[in-house]
């Protein structure tokens, strides 16, 4: 069992749901980024997704786009992300997932990328622009010791959800709505029904829900039909205003709600 799977299982067996937090690597500050990661774990994140900044993030809304652009302007690239990971790994062995678009990885070289990931004990990998259709030719069966996490969306039909579920390792990333990342005001019944359907189609898989989860209430609603939630834009928005205290409070309050 991988470290991601163990972490999820541990939370579920103790009656808690899982909280994964997305951070854009090197944002808002490159220097203090490792401390930020450690503090986010401390505040209650079970998993952290580190976003590799990309110039053209087509699945992201304005908040994450902006953070990505700022990080690139601050000199963040894949090599810097690995340097930061190396710093983080000196102080933490909690599960870390790299999330990034295909091009910077292709450009770095897939084999070098994967072997550096292994050295730095990266636990998982999410590439939103590598769907099922491109998965095998992109990875060329060279992935070892790392969970490749795949996404399902409200437009995926039942058969597809099953195929993605078979392929996805660690957990299945369930996109809550048709759309891009970013905060949303309400949780629709349609959305909850669909997540419930994914959960029932994939009884052996952990399902974490992402996109549009911004507060303890929406986290609670989505986690009632899944194994946990992923929070991104809401955190990035606070960080872009350098509101660190509020960031950690938000994370703690969401995790508290998931532990009731």
């Amino acid at each position: 069992m991988s470290r991601i799977e163990l972490t999820i299982q541990n939370e579920i067996s103790n009656g808690r749901k899982v909280l994964s937090v997305f951070l854009t690597a090197g944002f808002p500050s490159v220097e203090s980024f490792s401390d930020l990661v450690l503090n986010v774990f401390e505040a209650g994140a079970d998993l952290i997704e580190l976003g590799i900044p990309f110039s053209d993030p087509i699945a992201d809304g304005p908040v994450i786009q902006h953070s990505s652009q700022r990080a690139i302007e601050n000199g963040v690239n894949l090599e810097k992300v690995f340097l930061k990971l190396n710093e983080i790994r000196k102080n933490s062995d909690k599960p870390i997932i790299l999330m990034g678009y295909a091009n910077p990885i292709l450009n770095y070289g897939l084999n070098s990328f994967l072997s550096t990931c292994n050295e730095l004990k990266v636990d998982g990998l999410i590439i939103p622009d590598i769907p099922l259709e491109e998965f095998d030719s992109f990875f060329d069966s060279s992935v070892k010791n790392i969970d490749t996490i795949m996404l399902v969306s409200p437009t995926s039909d039942d058969n597809r959800i099953k195929m993605i579920g078979e392929k996805s390792k660690g957990f299945v990333y369930c996109v809550s709505v048709k759309g891009i990342t970013g905060e949303r005001n309400s949780v629709s019944e349609e959305s909850l029904n669909y997540i419930g359907k994914v959960k029932s189609l994939l009884p052996d898989k952990s399902i974490l829900v992402g996109f549009g989860i911004s507060n303890p209430q929406s986290a609670k609603s989505f986690s009632s039909v899944s194994d946990g939630v992923i929070v991104g834009s809401a955190v990035i928005k606070l960080l872009s205003e350098k509101k660190y205290k509020e960031t950690f409070e938000l994370i703690s309050s969401i995790k508290r709600e998931l532990s009731l």
């Binding site: 939103p128 622009d129 590598i130 769907p131 969306s153 409200p154 437009t155 995926s156 996109v175 048709k178």
Partner: peptide, 20 residues
């Protein structure tokens, strides 16, 4: 049939767009 022109082309998009 996969939309490839040799090694080029393909469908490198988020899951939501695959069905459409």
């Amino acid at each position: 049939s996969k939309g490839k022109f040799g090694r080029f082309g393909g469908k490198f998009v988020p899951e939501t767009l695959i069905t459409p």
